[in-house]
């Protein structure tokens, strides 16, 4: 089952030109517990091509949100950037199996 089928929404956005932040809105405490428990940070690192030690992770029970921030794979707006607002990256997390 895809992660996206278990949660309300996965969103990614620029956090300034050099970072992208991914918010997984789990919705229920049960979904949060499952995502928080099963989602391996290493898999997010692999899917986004980020060294594990650069991934910042916040599991926020009050909001039922798992938040992951990574340095942008390419700096926003530079020649190799394909996604100016960093919004497409969320689908990699949405479509991963948990």
């Amino acid at each position: 089952m895809r992660l996206g089928d278990k949660v309300l929404k996965v969103r990614s956005k620029n956090a300034g030109p050099f970072w992208i932040t991914i918010d997984i809105f789990c919705g229920t405490p049960e979904a949060f517990a499952e995502v928080s428990g099963k989602l391996e940070t290493q898999r997010v690192a692999d899917l986004t091509g980020t060294p594990l030690q650069l991934v910042k992770r916040f599991d926020i029970a009050d909001l039922r949100v798992v938040k992951l921030s990574i340095p942008r794979p390419v700096v926003q707006g530079s020649r190799d950037d394909r996604d100016m607002h960093g919004a497409a990256l969320a689908v990699l997390i949405d479509e991963m199996s948990l």
């Binding site: 620029n14 956090a15 300034g16 932040t21 809105f25 009050d62 909001l63 949100v65």
Partner: peptide
């Protein structure tokens, strides 16, 4: 409380 506190996530690499 949810809509307000969730806004700290927005475009922030660190929500705290």
């Amino acid at each position: 409380p949810h809509s307000v506190s969730a806004h700290m996530l927005y475009e922030n690499s660190d929500p705290f």
